[in-house]
Amino acid sequence: MSDPYMPLTSVRSGTGFEAAKGVHGLTVQIANVYFIQLPSEPRSFVLIDAGMPQSADMIVSEAKQRFGDDFQLRAIILTHGHFDHIGAIEGILEHWDVPVYVHSREMPYVTGKEDYPPARPDSKSGLVAKLSPLFPRHSIDISTHVQTLPEDGSVPFLDEWMWIATPGHTPGHISLFREDGRVLVAGDAVITVEQEKMADVLIQKQELHGPPAYFTPDTEMAAESIQKLAGLEPEALLTGHGIPMNGKNFRSDLIELANRLASL
């Protein structure tokens, strides 16, 4: 059963945007989902993440409005299984019967076998952090649809893309990268809003941050993951939370962020 609607939202909720060539984004309350176009099939897409609880209608409506009634979804790839990235997946799978791919270490959380650890409300100041013990952290069970990502780093249906293990926020967190345009879909490995602060979330104040601290049990590993992403020298940061950043090489910014996170 899906989690109930959660009133956490931002001024950008419901806003669709062109995030990069062949990548369309949609803000779902406080989180972003991305539709990546298949180069060989212009009407076919892969969905990255599945938004907040009770948002399936918003995501389906955006797809049809933006791409037309002949829109075809080929697969869903989850950067990780937190509630704000899988909230609408059951509703989406009712509409489109497609495979779902996750890292092997994320499987227990999407097959009903293991819950995420408790939130850490004192990890950082801010109202969202204080409210975090109220957020869902239980597993879901989509065993009939979910598969593990290929071990070679390839991305099903998306030949131009590769996936990168970026643990720390969760054990099986992944990001995706495309050389063309140096586009990084970071999930929550890197975000562009201080997610712990309600005012910043509401107005989507654009700043580069590490993953939400209240749901990040391994800060040291999260910092190592950011260092790994810095090595890719991305020029477009498409994040799970916050307005995407683009137009420069973000290597030095990510290294600085990783160092700052490692020193906490």
Rank of each mutant, 00 (worst) to 15 (best):
A258D: 02
H241Q: 11
D253G: 05
A258S: 14
L238K: 00
P234S: 06
E256I: 10
D253K: 10
L261G: 09
R251F: 01
R251Y: 06
M245F: 01
N249W: 01
L257E: 01
D253C: 04
I243V: 15
A236K: 13
L238D: 08
L232Y: 02
L232W: 00
M245N: 05
L254F: 03
F250A: 04
L254M: 03
G247F: 06
P234M: 08
E233N: 14
L238W: 00
A258M: 03
L254Y: 05
P244M: 08
G240L: 09
N249C: 13
L261N: 03
I255K: 09
L232N: 08
G242C: 10
E235Q: 15
E235S: 14
G231R: 10
R260G: 15
L261R: 03
E235F: 01
I243L: 14
A230E: 00
L257F: 07
E233Q: 15
R251L: 01
E235P: 06
L238P: 11
A236P: 11
E233K: 15
E256L: 11
L261Y: 02
F250W: 13
T239I: 09
G240Q: 09
L238V: 06
T239H: 02
L257W: 05
L254R: 00
N246F: 06
L232E: 09
N259P: 00
D253A: 14
G231H: 04
P234C: 06
L238R: 00
L232V: 06
D253L: 07
G247L: 08
M245Q: 14
G231W: 01
R251K: 15
L261T: 12
E235A: 12
L261H: 03
I255D: 07
N259R: 13
P244D: 11
N246R: 14
I255L: 15
